[in-house]
Design a protein around this nucleic acid. Structure first.
Lengths: 332, 332
DNA sequence: GATTCAATTGAAATCGATTACATCACGGCT
DNA sequence: AGCCGTGATGTAATCGATTTCAATTGAATC
């Protein structure tokens, strides 16, 4: 088969221990080191990571468990996590759960079998409720969505604040019947709904958030139906990039003009939000930073398990664009 | 530490061999099987995959080496590969090379250390020229970009044909000075340029493709400069989603109206291409299928290494949208 | 010159599983 | 009754590295 440490050792005329020390920067005389390095090159030796991990008892691997890598939010996070991980000499195992609690459980089991050093996890709401971090023998960092209260490190957006900013922006621009769509699979949705209701209550206005599956299709359907009701909203807020897309499609299909007949704003500053029509107002999340910080926190905890549990809350950034320029006067 | 097979064995009152057989569906009596399964559950035993891989000499892992997972093309491919892999009981290690040949070499080395079963690879042009598949002891499947001629299985788009379709479409719609931007890091760019030149030559028209880095920024800059030249094109073709985005930005910044003053078409049917203006005409690649077929080919080769080398060429699909409706008559 | 100490080196144990091989019990057959 | 084949089980070797521990060397100290 392939060349092993034994082959290198005999080629260099040294013991396997010495070869191992050369590889691991242990104490070796310059002469032997040179001989070994030459042998490694000559034979094209590559250490077997399974064997190394088995013996040394650390995997140098972290798991990243998210709902769907095709969601640009997670794509960005994943890229940041991988950059940071590989820089720290670790690998990343990526898992897509499709918001399916069974897949989540399955992948967490897999992470245990891989003996990963730690996991960065974005759990579904269902999972996060009844699951116990203590059941795993690796640390976890939650991202985007909060897990069971205070059990693990977390990197989150200030969802309440972000919603409030969006709502107040819409109100400032003259919209008054503000509807909203939130995802029904994560804690993120509830938190954003909280901010949304709070901001409206403050002004004595009625709220009416609706919870649907966090997909473009579900959002499109929901908005299409909403438009048919007696008093539809005059502005809509969508809780992630996919739902914003669905809302946009429904409004276009129904011929509702933006921003005149309907204001539209949402989360996630995806490429296209700046390009469609006169641009869509959104809350931009610090995607890359979320991944980066999550990885840093995980590494810190691996260094020192006794660290107090931390929760980093980042602010989003409101990007005002044409889709919320205000309702047409003629409407009144 | 964590519970090992030995613990399970003594808890169930059997030998480790029997436990291993229960796990691997070997021949075990119903009674012992039940005892072992109970012990596994009671102790929460999870087999150590490093140990298993070391002993059994197969990793059940494939590598996926692409330039950047944030490119929606690769995101889609990756999702398909992972779905297919996990269905076949394999894991995927994802690597981003950033079109950097050194990173490519580094990650291929890593793949050897992981003793992966195989690799799905989208090489830079530079790497694909001087690299030898025989140097690796795992099979590879090339995707999107062709590797060294005929050395490995590949799943590709018919780039020549796709370019021809785009050019003929533009000509049909009345454009005549067709410019094009191709990425300078992959074989894909050259192939698309080939089709582009061929289609124009057939009609006796001049061609003038330009090669730039496959990023939005590079494309934007290139188009901005192009517009300042003596006789700018009246239609542009962009070789991937990012470059199409860059071209669009440059045209908008310069106030060039689409499709009247400039036709615009490109590759990759990304979400936003259907949403901006009256839509952008694009060639849609069968992204998910590319990943799926690549994985199938890899699995087939792992089954039988003697299989003849295959190259699957898929057709793209032309999606006609508003951005190529034709130049304004008033221009003449 | 003897003793101590640090720095190299190698032999062998070890990580946690799979698997080759030996053993055993049992039933069917001549 | 004796023989043999079959299926279940256990013992021990093995995968390829790291790491412990002991041995060796040579320089430094008294």
């Amino acid at each position: 088969m392939s060349v092993k440490i034994k082959d290198v050792a005999s080629a260099a005329g040294v013991s396997v221990a010495t070869v191992s020390r050369v590889l691991g920067n242990g104490p070796v005389s310059a002469e032997l080191r040179a001989r070994v390095e030459r042998a490694v090159l000559d034979l094209g030796y590559r250490p077997n990571l399974s064997a190394r991990r088995l013996r040394s008892q650390h995997s140098q691997t972290v798991g990243l468990v998210v709902s769907d890598i095709r969601n640009p939010f997670f794509t960005g996070v994943s890229r940041a996590v991988e950059d940071a991980a590989y820089q720290a000499g670790m690998r990343v195992i990526l898992c897509n759960t499709d918001e399916n609690p069974e897949k989540e459980a399955m992948y967490l089991r897999l992470m245990q079998e891989e003996r990963v050093s730690g996991v960065i996890f974005s759990p579904t709401r269902e999972t996060s409720q009844h699951f116990n971090v203590a059941g795993f023998d690796f640390p976890m960092v939650m991202i985007d969505r909060t897990g069971p209260a205070g059990q693990a490190d977390a990197v989150l957006l200030d969802n309440r604040l972000a919603s409030i900013q969006l709502v107040e922006h819409l109100l400032d621009r003259g919209y008054s019947r503000i509807g909203a769509l939130f995802g029904n699979t994560s804690t993120t949705g509830s938190e954003r709904n909280g901010g949304y209701e709070e901001a409206l209550k403050l002004r004595g206005l009625p709220s009416g958030g609706r919870f649907v599956a966090p997909t473009a299709e579900a959002a499109e359907l929901a908005v299409a139906q909403w438009l048919k009701e007696a008093t539809p909203p005059d502005a809509l807020l969508a809780s992630n990039g996919l739902m914003l897309l669905g809302a946009l499609r429904a409004l276009r299909a129904a011929g509702v003009s933006i921003p005149a007949r309907m204001g539209l704003a949402g989360f996630d500053n995806e490429i296209w939000t700046g390009l469609v029509g006169e641009g869509l107002t959104v809350i931009e999340q610090p995607v890359y930073q979320i991944g980066q910080i999550a990885m840093e926190m995980l590494l810190a905890r691996l260094e020192d398990a006794s660290l107090p549990i931390r929760r980093v809350v980042l602010n989003g950034r409101l990007i005002e664009r044409g889709s919320t320029r205000g309702p047409s006067r003629s409407e009144h």
